[in-house]
Design a protein around this nucleic acid. Structure first.
Lengths: 342, 342
DNA sequence: TTCAGGGGTGAAATCCTTTTCAGCGGCAGG
DNA sequence: CCTGCCGCTGAAAAGGATTTCACCCCTGAA
């Protein structure tokens, strides 16, 4: 029924050498060329494929690295994943993707798998700042890099963007365009990116209006997904005095926000819309959207490079790389109708 | 430096039992409740986490299943992935995602990893009909399910949609809407879905125009990505007699097609556009797009269920499940301007 | 000529868990 | 009272690779 498995022993027997020699042939030990060739031939003839599980057990480390992301349906993270893959491509490591679905329990399970499978390294965009526990991994010396989101207290290398600054620049731009009642739809409490983008928004408002401006009636926490954005925007539109612009803390929620606006018969730049992160397939959207552009691919690539570096480097001091965002001004923040009318 | 690893031996010693008993506690063997409890306590106290690699080696099977998809940036596949995950969720298996990037070499490596890591099962949307070789996996008795795309000659369960029928229905709809010069932008040669959707298109044209209609001047093979769709549509628009409608064989290429149309100052339904597969975040697109809707999530869920069934089921005969597509008629295929003018 | 060193090799230990096997003790039935 | 069976347990084997260690042989230097 099941074909018997070809082991290193079988190859050794066929080639008339010891298993140790076969192992050396495949791992670059010192072997006489003639012998090496006969081992190669025997292996090919038998269709030998090394048992990675046995190898991992012995070496105490597999040749797979895990990338754990919170939303596989968000193009930001899939682009980031491409960056990780492309960087890992040049090594002998394979990348596997795990989707935590913004669920700390699922994430915990994947972290456990990564630990139990003795993965060579882990790159994680944490589902939560407080509940994501990287302790077991770091305690066992597994290299870990936090990307995009940073878990509190984690002693790991990190790559992220300047969330606070980006949020501030975005909000300032809306102010300068003439909008006055600027709302913020941010992500879940407990995600570092949510909080920092929101903090940037607040900082810009405070700078403009003075210290008394910390009014949170225009702030909504949603779930970083389309539905959440839609619901939040509906709420904002139903306020007695609805906002005339909105800073949305991620790309998918922006889609929901635009939907809600259309429902209400409003379109940018009548209501200003500024997205933190490019809306996917933005070419489809009219009017074109202003956005804080995120280097998603580079985020992934940098994280992978940091991980690789840590994997052979050893005990260099921890580092955090902060990548710059850029504000891309387009039609959706052209200024409120009121301003044009005045 | 590195914290020493807690093994089942350590737990056994701490609890005053043998390693075998500890193993039984964690795997549901017969153990006296009192003893079991003391083992649990010792394990918790020491922070024991089982070494999955050793377990896999002994059991000749890990508790991870691989999902190999050809394009992680395509929402069709990420939705499919969600379906797989949700189905696997109810078991103790973990799903890891591998992105082959439509590259048969990368795919081969991932298949090798899946084999070498002794994964419990593999679900694969094949990068190629001819070059994807599932032989090594099936020969070793690893359960495999082909999803969406089917590799030729593979002796595996499969889940797909009625590509041929869907392509035929789509094309017929364009004909009925009054379009006469209908183009087809399909995927790469060698992908089963490309070929069958194209075949459906041809069948509809032949049925309408008679056997002589097999003119391929309106057929373009692209790469299932945005850029490919854009380039193909540009080509079609530069023909002496450009098409008045286009059937696009996947969602991402449709985005490119729409871009090319906008460049040329044309918009649906002036030129009819019908997409095989929903365009992501279709709510953003005006006019709304007619599409052959694909049950992407169900495709994944069904594949996972088939895999699970095969994993305990044993040697039931191979099966192929074909899910139905549904044609969703919207504005983009309202009929050509010429017809309205006439 | 002798000795040190190094390349090439195989036997055996090692990684950690699961599983088989044999043994022990207790209980039920004859 | 004896036998048979069943539940529980631990010792030991098994799974397949890597790596250590000891050894042999050969070369080059003293």
């Amino acid at each position: 029924m099941r074909a018997q498995v070809v082991t290193i022993q079988d190859v050794a027997r066929a080639a008339g050498v010891s298993p140790a020699t076969v192992s050396r042939v495949f791992n670059g030990g010192n072997v006489t060329p003639a012998r090496a060739q006969s081992v190669q031939r025997a292996a090919a003839a038998l269709g030998f494929a090394p048992n990675r599980v046995a190898r991992s057990l012995r070496k105490q480390r597999s040749s797979v690295i895990a990338l754990i992301i919170p939303d596989i349906e968000n193009p930001f993270f899939t682009s980031l994943a491409r960056g990780v893959e492309d960087a890992a491509q040049r090594t002998s490591l394979s990348v596997v993707l795990c989707n935590s679905d913004e669920d700390t329990e699922k994430e915990r399970r994947y972290l456990e798998v990564a630990l139990g499978e003795q993965m060579a390294g882990v790159i994680v965009a944490a589902a939560s700042r407080d509940e994501t526990d990287l302790g077991p991994l770091t305690a066992r010396g597994v290299p870990v890099v936090a990307v995009d989101r940073r878990p509190r207290d984690a002693e790991v290398d990190a790559v992220r963007v300047d969330d606070h600054h980006g949020g501030e620049v975005a909000t300032r731009h809306l102010l300068q365009a003439g909008y006055r009642r600027i709302a913020c739809v941010t992500g879940p409490e407990g995600a570092s990116t949510s909080e920092e983008r929101l903090a940037g928004y607040r900082a810009a408002l405070t700078a403009a209006k003075g210290a008394g401006a910390s009014d949170d009636s225009y702030v909504r926490h949603a779930d970083f997904r389309v539905e959440g954005g839609r619901a939040a925007m509906r709420e904002l539109l139903s306020l007695p005095e609805p906002p005339d612009a909105v800073f949305v803390a991620n790309n998918l929620m922006t889609i929901g926000v635009l939907d809600a606006l259309r429902e209400a018969g409003r379109t940018p730049p009548d209501v200003g819309v500024l997205s933190f992160g490019d809306v996917p397939w933005a070419s489809l959207v009219r009017p074109s959207l202003s956005a804080v552009e995120l280097p998603s691919y580079e985020l992934g690539r940098t994280a992978a490079e940091l991980l690789l570096q840590r994997m052979d480097g050893g005990a260099a001091p921890l580092q955090t790389v902060v990548l710059r965002t850029t504000l891309q001004v387009r039609e959706s923040t052209g200024g409120p109708a009121a301003a044009r009318g005045a």
